[in-house]
Design a binder for these strands. Structure first.
Lengths: 127, 127
DNA sequence: TTAATTATACGAATTTTTTCGTTGACTATA
DNA sequence: TATAGTCAACGAAAAAATTCGTATAATTAA
């Protein structure tokens, strides 16, 4: 017995989606190499993962050619929003402020980026 | 065969840690009830989860009384930073700006909170 | 004190996630 | 065309995450 239903992509699946969003449509090999930069993974492992993601409808596959090409089937925006939303409720008791604080402390952010964020805040308050 | 090593708390574990950070030291029942607000879970399931977390050192248990009381053994700050850091790299290709954007769009944020965030930005920029 | 209630301990079953080996098809090239 | 290299399909499995049933101990109520 285990989980019952919902919940989005798994950890690895999210990693793969991230790569596809970033690099555009890719073959298994390309994705596998990108993954390898963090933590080596066998080719067939990545392949299987992507086949399962296809079944789940997380990605779509163009198999008209010898080398199948995969691309995301879920939007970057919605998926990210969903993942962040979950984290927000689960770990930050709904406080976006706290989450933002951690995000900014988890990584050095350039002044340019800070400026963009500030502009975003302005727009939000812009009513 | 499966995962090889690292990675922090699992999803459910994170949920439990979140509850403990928020509500302070709690019994299994208290945690279980809190969890139930989202998705019903059997008492023994929650118990088992917390026992495992004790083994992993994620929480510590005071079993001097009949009702064992659990409290977090990992800091809220470090854990949150780690989780957010992971997400940042994996899903947002390291862009804190993007993550912040999603966080703000995932949830309505009060003007007061926005102000706090802005203040935080000011401090980050130094001066 | 006995019965009912509440808790924890254990063990095990289930699901899900992750990981690969093997096989056979396809491709480019010597 | 023979050969080596690349790739996807499959099936199996190990590992990890979840979920509970059952047994037993402690506590409380009658």
């Amino acid at each position: 017995m285990a989980r019952q239903k919902v919940s989005g992509p798994t950890d690895k699946e999210l990693t793969i989606l991230g790569i596809l969003w970033n690099n555009g449509p890719s073959t298994v090999r390309q994705v596998n190499e990108e993954m390898g930069k963090q933590e080596r993974t066998g080719y067939t492992t990545t392949l299987k993962l992507m086949q399962i993601m296809t079944e789940k409808g997380l990605v779509v596959r163009d198999d008209s050619k010898f080398q199948h090409v995969y691309k995301p089937a879920v939007s970057e925006e919605n998926t990210q929003k969903q993942v962040v939303g979950n984290l927000l409720e689960k770990v930050f008791s709904g406080s976006a402020e706290k989450l933002v604080m951690r995000a900014l402390s988890a990584k050095k952010v350039s002044a340019k980026e800070l400026a963009k964020i500030r502009k975003m805040l302005d727009e939000m308050e812009g009513k």
